[in-house]
């Protein structure tokens, strides 16, 4: 499968993204606060989107980009949902008051 230079470049990019994902997972494990963990989850999601895209080009099946787009959507919504849950302890409809001002 790995025969031409483009394959080699995509394989290297895939390995780099993999290393970056491992580093971010280490921060997810160590992270002292909740917000560090949410931040590294979000950044892991962005790297997953890129990973799926590069993997699609490596396998010469660029249809994987649809999955990457879907993953980007899910990642954004899940980050916002996690933050909203830990701020208001509810995901449904709530009356938002800016508690910072009070």
């Amino acid at each position: 499968m790995i025969s031409t230079i483009p394959h080699f470049v995509f394989l290297i990019a895939l390995l780099m993204l993999f290393i970056a994902m491992v580093l971010v997972l280490l921060r997810l494990y160590k992270g002292p606060t909740l917000y560090d963990r949410v931040l590294s989850t979000n950044s892991f999601g962005t790297q997953t989107v890129l990973f799926i895209g590069v993997l699609g080009f490596l396998c010469e099946r660029p249809d994987f980009l649809d999955i990457a787009l879907l993953y980007a959507l899910i990642n954004f919504v899940s980050t916002i949902a996690i933050l909203k849950f830990f701020r208001y302890r509810a995901i449904g409809d709530i009356l938002i008051e800016r508690e910072a001002k009070k």
Binding site: M16, I19, A20, L23, R27, S40, S43, Q47, L50
Partner: peptide, 10 residues
């Protein structure tokens, strides 16, 4: 750049 970003966040 992605590796540098991850390294920085570590």
């Amino acid at each position: 750049l992605v590796i540098i970003g991850a390294l920085g966040s570590l």
